[in-house]
Design a protein around this nucleic acid. Sequence first.
DNA 1: TGCATTTCTCAGGGAAATCACAGATAGGAG
DNA 2: CTCCTATCTGTGATTTCCCTGAGAAATGCA
Lengths: 246, 246
Amino acid sequence: MTTTSPQGRSELLRPDGSPVRVLVVDDELSITDLLSMALRYEGWRIRSAGDGQGAIQTAREFRPDAVVLDMMLPDMDGLTVLGRLRRELPDVPVLFLTAKDAVEDRIAGLTAGGDDYVTKPFSLEEVVARLRGLIRRSGAADRRSDSVLVVGDLTLDEDSHEVSRAGQGIHLTATEFELLRFLMRNPRRVLSKAQILDRVWSYDFGGQANVVELYISYLRRKIDAGHEPMIHTRRGAGYLIKPAAS
Amino acid sequence: MTTTSPQGRSELLRPDGSPVRVLVVDDELSITDLLSMALRYEGWRIRSAGDGQGAIQTAREFRPDAVVLDMMLPDMDGLTVLGRLRRELPDVPVLFLTAKDAVEDRIAGLTAGGDDYVTKPFSLEEVVARLRGLIRRSGAADRRSDSVLVVGDLTLDEDSHEVSRAGQGIHLTATEFELLRFLMRNPRRVLSKAQILDRVWSYDFGGQANVVELYISYLRRKIDAGHEPMIHTRRGAGYLIKPAAS
DNA sequence: TGCATTTCTCAGGGAAATCACAGATAGGAG
DNA sequence: CTCCTATCTGTGATTTCCCTGAGAAATGCA
């Protein structure tokens, strides 16, 4: 089920109304911390584990609705962990974390059962979006929840990656798409450049902070051109998106 | 009965609305795991067994609507298992898994009764498609569910393997056909190259990921040539198919 | 066996996306 | 009004991703 909180954020809930539970497994503490924080912010209940052994144990008693699993663990192979997890929780969807250069290697079969993966270094938006997709499709959350974000006459479909304003289709690049998704998931809320950088760009991004300005500029050309602007600058604070009407 | 979920995936259900039940029998754990995962994603209820003995027992109490049966089991011959299965469940359709070099005659005789087979290594699309066909024809699912996929003016018949666009017949090779089927079973949804590789190519495929690009290229020549394109690239995300109109 | 078809690898070319840099522009304080 | 600073955006370098031709290898079929 999808509810809308007073702040306008929509939360994914389980059919009985309780929060979604997610288990995060990674041996790097900085990663589990980063992910736990971001996923808690989504309103989800989070547990984390640093190795395969702990993952199995925690899964057994925590019974998560989804698992984020690093394929590179100190004590056992990712596939072994996966196998044991499946024995405990046959239907739980798994989001794999994998090194970029390992993709060719043995991702084979990983996405076959409806699972998914992201490569390190990832952006938090990407992880959150894919987790939401997995949970939605697994049926742990209400299936009727859909994948379309709407703000005013602007719509963004997370499945088809289609964006349109006033019925007019708009082509966005991957980064533009993620930025707009982040804005639209937080309508009427000012997002600082630092927040945007942290969510939309990879955690190891080392570039100039003004990429955010640049991409806001790109978005405006595509979204706001010829319309009442929806993307607004709050000088010294950040950016926000809101319906043109108000 | 065939229902269409909000995401556009169609599910095969039994006449009373309950999910279809499938029993998977194979002694290799990696195979039962892979199949269980993929078939659960189809919305079916899955049980698995690792030998003939377990297969019979599970069949007795699970009463599946279809069985996936490896012909090479540790404890007894495939034909023996089949015989005992038939005693328990006279009408259940069986999908045989067999090594490529297995005696064709023997299998040919078996499939005369409406059963079917695939050779190892198989692709998941193939297994799913054949199972759907068996279940549909057995009457466990509503018979009115048909086997023709339609997206815009493009049609694909899963039974006859005929494909046509705007009434014009198109010849596709086996791989092209499976790729197009996978796309058409997920219209308007972006499918990553990894997903495509995992579903359409055999589970032991160890080659370059750019076969997907290559086959997309082949498909475009045959499907989109001289028409408004239906196959679209989402750079950095994957591919999707949708009606030309929108 | 020999031919035709299909599948796949490899590599070059090209287009698109990302980003740094820097000059232009606009908001706001005084 | 002027200056300072934050923000915007044009240009182009670099990288990444995708497409496709050519041919090798595998497969199927007569």
